[in-house]
Design a protein around this nucleic acid. Sequence first.
DNA 1: GTCCCGCCCCCCCAATTCTGGGGGGCTGTC
DNA 2: GACAGCCCCCCAGAATTGGGGGGGCGGGAC
Lengths: 255, 255
Amino acid sequence: MNGAVETYVEWLAGAASTGEIARRLQELLQQLGFDRYSYSHARPPLGKKIRSFVPLGSPSGNHVHEFLVTLPDAWVDHYLAHDYGDLDPTFSGAMTRVLPFPWRDVAGRNDLTNGQRRVLDEARDFGVAHGATVPIHGPDSGLSALNVVCHSGPQFEEAFRRGYRDLIWVAMNTHEAFLSLSEDTAGRIRVRLTDRERDCLLWTARGKTAWEVGQILTISEETVLFHLKNATRKIGVFSKHHAVVKAIVQGYILP
Amino acid sequence: MNGAVETYVEWLAGAASTGEIARRLQELLQQLGFDRYSYSHARPPLGKKIRSFVPLGSPSGNHVHEFLVTLPDAWVDHYLAHDYGDLDPTFSGAMTRVLPFPWRDVAGRNDLTNGQRRVLDEARDFGVAHGATVPIHGPDSGLSALNVVCHSGPQFEEAFRRGYRDLIWVAMNTHEAFLSLSEDTAGRIRVRLTDRERDCLLWTARGKTAWEVGQILTISEETVLFHLKNATRKIGVFSKHHAVVKAIVQGYILP
DNA sequence: GTCCCGCCCCCCCAATTCTGGGGGGCTGTC
DNA sequence: GACAGCCCCCCAGAATTGGGGGGGCGGGAC
């Protein structure tokens, strides 16, 4: 099989910084036949603006970056300056797909808006033309994507045909490594909830009041409140809302 | 490479019923060294109505099933009768992971509740002991999982070591084929939240009270309550807890 | 131009629910 | 016996729910 991919994935387990990951990922993708890449997080285009991105090579330390990018600087600057994140049709593609798809699929769609087409056209002008997007649907509704690009069309087709399964594997592993370096998960202490605490959180997350949860579990409202109080304290927050949210995000319950 | 997997994936494109998929999937997984499997949805994708559960072998027609299962009937019955879906620790694992993981990882965690451990123990009693879960985070915030099981531990370790990359590919493609067969009920209803409504939901999800959110957004507590009321109504629920949870699950906000 | 509509902001009120303490007791297991 | 898990009860103060009433602003339709 492909030793380079396996070596990279094994190396990821001990990766210490996102900058390192960015460099190794670039090396690996080049071995797979792709010239450049970008790895970024798409959801949500709603409230948040794109904050910082750190191109390959800049000093990174342990800081967590939103993007890993080795696309041409000029294109990245242009992209960010025009807020193309909201427009980019490859992102909307990633939103509705699970499998990797080449950009020619997107370009061939006839329901693109003028703005979306402009993004594609301008990307081509910057030399970002032949590529593919690997959607990464993460836990907690996150959506990230790994884009890979080749300078020439035939080179891309060959690399993509040979390597699309490798791409998925690489993208997933890179994503997990990236997430595990994020400060949120780093300091997480898993607490031990009891079954009743989980039950109460679960039904609360489903919109029930304490009294209703009591009816469902055939215990008194007071007891439900008791369990919720304990669970809230264990999880380390001060309100039921927060406890429920954290219980979901950290995987204690399924919404 | 593995011709059987490729053949299966190509066949999937033309698959006409979920019953067929269930049979072919069983054949394929057996070739990969796994004895049985289950494919189910922890959180059905938005907009897809997924109805009943039909084990492999029953007459299926074009009906859409919630589960594809070839685990022992006795265990499945027991599982469903006790509503283990809410408890099953492999699902909570899938909730926070992207990559496949063997169940021994779950069993080794020290934060399981008694109930969660009971599910694992009882599964073993029913002969469902050596297995792995392949999380499938789909678009639309859906979370599904493919579980594969072997009768013997060594057999599982060998098959998993050799085939975990195939499993991802198989799971993804099966999932896409399955979804494309499920009826698209009335399109999913995505509500349009305003910026302020999202802001208020976001800070509420982070555990702030209405008054605090008001301080953060420099608006009055009353206005925060106003936006939360509207958002709750739009999302179609009756409590703030539920609204926050649904906003997260459906990707309107990130926790 | 005007009008309407969505969005945002503020205020009021009664009823209900939650927070954060306290006090018990009953089963199991270690 | 200690301890964890579960169950029940009480209370005061705070927060939320679910209605209502405003006004202002900007953009698109007419």
